[in-house]
């Protein structure tokens, strides 16, 4: 595998995991515009646990994932008091606070960042990505996943059907924090350094776009969205100057033509029906 190709695959894997972290909260009806903050927590968590506490690679990655989940769990309580656009702003503010803390902390390397002492290869990222994809598909196939989608669609009715909306939303936030934290830890180990400038507002916006343009109705959405956003700019590299213009036009076209995301429930059903005529009953 060429260095370029393996680099693109690693970034794709990290972005896919990142997108799934945002997707699980979006599937339960909450938009998280603080993705970069959660990813920074995972990246810095892995870096500090490795550099200061001497944890091995996989122990540090696992611990960073748990930290991401814990912070997601704790932050869910104040954030879930807000709704709609205010929730989006609250998550956005959370990410800015994380960045502000890192920038002003010498322990965390401030604006200079931290240099890792261990590395992982693309192969490890591929396995982690497959694991997360399988986990999210599993989750969405359970009654718990069904309850998440019910909360997304109609909270009062979900409540009357016996769903504990608040518990589902908090769980989704914690899970999202964990998965996003995992993507940050993998990022730190793959690139060998963490710098806070990377975890900026644009990153939060981009990952939310992966999910919204990919589609939030099925677990295929983030995969397609992250793939679209990671691979299309690479494919457009040949027309260097026009790259971002073409990309921008593509995004606008997607929003006009597929307002509910590239992959919708209907689309998945239609593809399934074509593949096997009896699958419609499933």
């Amino acid at each position: 595998m060429s260095g370029y190709l393996s680099g693109v695959i690693a970034i794709l894997g990290i972005n896919v995991i990142f997108a799934y972290g945002i997707f699980v909260t979006a599937a339960a009806g909450q938009l998280n515009l603080g993705g970069a903050g959660f990813q920074a927590i995972g990246a810095y968590g892995a870096a500090i646990l490795s550099l200061e506490f001497g944890l091995g690679i996989w122990a540090a990655i696992a611990a960073a994932t748990v930290i991401g989940g814990l912070i997601g769990f704790l932050i869910a309580f104040p954030i879930l008091r807000t709704r709609g656009v205010y929730m989006v702003l609250a998550t956005f503010a959370f990410a800015q606070v994380v960045v502000g803390i890192v920038l002003n902390s010498n322990y965390l390397g401030g604006s200079m960042g931290l240099i890792m002492s261990d590395y992982i290869e693309t192969g490890a990222i591929i396995w982690a990505t497959l694991g997360v994809i399988l986990f999210v598909f599993y989750l969405m196939s359970t009654p718990m996943g069904l309850a998440m989608r019910a909360v997304h669609d109609d909270e009062p009715v979900a409540d009357l059907m016996g769903v504990n909306n608040r518990a589902v939303q908090v769980a989704a936030f914690a899970l999202g924090g964990a998965i996003t934290g995992l993507s940050g830890a993998l990022y730190a180990y793959y690139f060998g350094f963490v710098e806070v400038q990377y975890f900026n507002a644009l990153l939060s916006i981009f990952v939310l776009l992966y999910v919204l343009i990919g589609g939030t109705q099925t677990a295929w959405g983030p995969l397609v969205g992250a793939g679209f956003f990671t691979l299309i700019p690479e494919a457009l590299r040949m027309g260097e100057d026009w790259r971002f213009l073409i990309f921008g036009v593509l995004i606008v076209a997607m929003m006009i033509l597929r307002p509910e995301g590239i992959v919708t429930r209907d689309a998945v059903d239609r593809i399934r029906a074509r593949l096997s005529p009896r699958a419609r009953d499933a």
Partner: peptide, 27 residues
């Protein structure tokens, strides 16, 4: 956004325990 059978399955939610919640019914 749920299918007919998924909507109906939502009616079982109140009778499912935590383990039941984690069964991959869709698969």
């Amino acid at each position: 956004h749920l299918s007919v059978v998924e909507n109906v399955m939502l009616g079982q939610h109140a009778r499912q325990g935590l383990l039941g919640q984690l069964k991959p019914v869709g698969l």
